[in-house]
Amino acid sequence: MSILIIDNNDSFTYNLRHLLQTAQSSEPDVISYDSIDKVDFQRYDTIVISPGPGKPSEYPNYSKLFKSGKPIIGVCLGMQIMAEFYGGEVSLLEDCFHGRTESIEFDGKSFEVARYHSLAITRVPSCFTVISSNQATVPMAMTHNEFPYIGYQFHPESFLTKNGQFFIDYAFKFINSIRA
């Protein structure tokens, strides 16, 4: 399994890389969003879109990735970029939530997860299904109805998230189920 992380100039990218490496026992490559045009996505099995500052509209160069047909995992901004690309809407949260945990229901169980975001998906595109949302109905995880795309609004790679590994394993199980 070869994985590429596109780093949107974030400061949690290498936490994500270590977590992905644990899940897939291979070292993911990391490239900066600034060099996205130079990447050959076909060399990779899965592409991860990292968290990062700002809003999806400030990252306009992802269309080549969505046209590549490759499985995608989006985290935080990464999930918001997926949503906007497919016609969803991302807006300011009323109360931003930074560096704290919240308990969410996911896959029939309760998990403590770390959230770091000021923006959230306020209109989910019809081709995606929200598979977890918090009590305030903010989408916390979503999957594409047809393609192997999965997004997490929270941060599986944070040390505050209990059992972050579970979410990475879940993502690959989901991706494999679509491809099979």
């Binding site: 290498y14 560096g99 941060h155 505050l160």
Partner: peptide, 13 residues
């Protein structure tokens, strides 16, 4: 906590 996550990231490199 935010800074701890960042330091984890920075030394993970």
């Amino acid at each position: 906590s935010m800074i701890v996550d960042m330091v984890r990231n920075d030394i993970s490199i």
